[in-house]
């Protein structure tokens, strides 16, 4: 990408980036500030710790200490397990499904119709499926277990993965695969050795997306879990009590909850860029 920089564009780009960063970060900044204020100060406008107000670890003591701390830690653990495992399974099924719909032609139904059917699974409002899911899981004796939530989240995320994969695979130049097929690779090998690595940036992106969606999903978890399998969103929702909303608690919990996906995104972001330089796309 060697291009002479057009300075006007870069000035605009920088201003835009700066504003957008401010816009994006401010709520988090405020959340972080609120999470280190004492409950009595949660509504004050002070924003410089030590200078304008005395930081307090009260919120963190509540959120991480004693009985509630047990719940928070368990919630974090559950969230990590559910999101990573369900996204991995989704990725596996989604890559296969997406590839087949991008590359093969099916005779009985049109590819498009299959794809739309798959997607329609995501269109249904969760309310309509929450109780049937509950009944299924009860029959399978899986209520309040992590597999139940993982299974539900796969239904929720798989359509998304398949759809994105279709596009990613379609973008790939077919010639490379054809060459491989001529060289005597089987279809499976061509998929595994050629297409999959080429689509890696896309795959990573899909993984992050599924991870985040699963991480943030609320209604299924609330329906299918009792005590051992609550995930972070449900725990955060618990901060809205009949007493009202404790902003210091919400802030602390939300900060905790966003950390793992952000770390994941930060790590894979580098990977995304390396995916670009793999070379085959550029030839």
């Amino acid at each position: 990408m060697k291009r002479k920089s057009i300075s006007g564009f870069f000035v605009f780009a920088w201003i835009f980036l700066a504003l957008f960063t401010l816009w994006t970060l401010f709520p988090f900044f405020w959340g972080a500030i609120t999470a280190i204020k004492s409950p009595g100060e949660q509504y004050s406008t002070a924003f410089l710790p030590y200078l304008q107000f005395k930081p307090s670890s009260y919120a963190w003591q509540v959120v991480l200490g004693q009985a509630e701390g047990e719940r928070t830690k368990q919630g974090l653990r559950n969230s990590i397990l559910v999101s990573s495992v369900s996204s991995l399974l989704v990725l596996f099924m989604g890559a296969l499904g997406g590839y087949s719909l991008a590359r093969f032609r099916f005779s009985r139904w049109k590819n498009r119709d299959i794809a739309v059917w798959i997607l329609s699974n995501r269109m249904f409002p969760p309310i309509a499926v929450a109780i049937p899911f509950f009944l299924i899981m009860r029959t399978l004796r899986l209520l309040d277990t992590l597999p139940a939530i993982i299974m539900a989240h796969i239904v929720y995320n798989l359509p998304l993965a398949v759809w994105l994969m279709i596009d990613f695979f379609r973008e790939l130049p077919e010639e490379v695969e054809e060459a491989a097929l001529i060289d005597g690779c089987s279809t499976v090998q061509a998929f595994w050795r050629i297409s999959l690595p080429l689509a890696l940036p896309g795959i990573v992106a899909v993984y992050i997306l599924c991870f985040v969606f699963s991480w943030n999903e609320f209604l299924f978890v609330v329906t299918l879990s009792y005590r051992k399998t609550m995930t972070m969103p449900v725990i955060i929702a618990g901060a809205l009590t009949v007493r009202g909303l404790d902003f210091w608690k919400v802030s602390a919990l939300s900060l905790l909850a966003i950390t793992p996906p952000v770390i994941l995104a930060a790590l894979t972001s580098r990977y995304l860029i390396r995916g670009l330089t793999l070379g085959a796309v550029k030839e």
Partner: peptide
Amino acid sequence: VVFLFPMAAPPIGIAFM
């Protein structure tokens, strides 16, 4: 990385924030 933050936080938490 920064621009991914809002999406990574649970919508419930975002709503409350």
